[in-house]
Design a protein around this nucleic acid. Sequence first.
DNA 1: GGTATGATGGGC
DNA 2: CCCATCATACCC
Length: 185
Amino acid sequence: MLLDSSFFNQKTALVAQELLGKFLVRRIGGKTLSAMIVETEAYVGPHDLASHASKGKTERTKVMFEKAGVWYVYLIYGMYHCLNIVTEEKGYPSAVLIRALELEVEGKKIANGPGKLCRALGIDRKLNGVSAVAKNAQLFIEDRGEKIPRNKIVKAKRIGVDYAGKWKDELLRFYIKGNKFVSKK
DNA sequence: GGTATGATGGGC
DNA sequence: CCCATCATACCC
């Protein structure tokens, strides 16, 4: 079942947890790739100092203010892309960063990190601002009936946000306990 | 096992 | 100047 805008229009920390066990589906060059989401992070609003949107609405961050169910893709460190899905009401900047997928090729994990996952699925800024819930979306998320029990969801600090004051210690990173594709312990 | 660092470019 | 990263180098 395709996840729709009502799913993404909920509290960001809830969406981040609910996305564990869902499948990210990519249509590219006539092929379809899909893999289970095993790790996410929530960027919960303009007051969240770890969020790009805490600096206000700019050319880069304006997508975070869009309605729920739009992709927010940006370039980081000059060489990697990060994939986020916008959440909550239009005008309220928040999103979930998808950090890792259960995906391997010839025994090699190729999506155990936000930059690697974008490389593996051919995701770049062309998808920024594009809908994940439109009929013919090239990139969307499906519920395939997998349900991750609460006691298998680990809550942890987010990665790479040491600049965020007290927000750096918030437990807004979520991953499936024991999963080998999670990017960091 | 661990920590340190360079690559590389756009945002502020 | 600073990054919501990754691969590699080197050290214990």
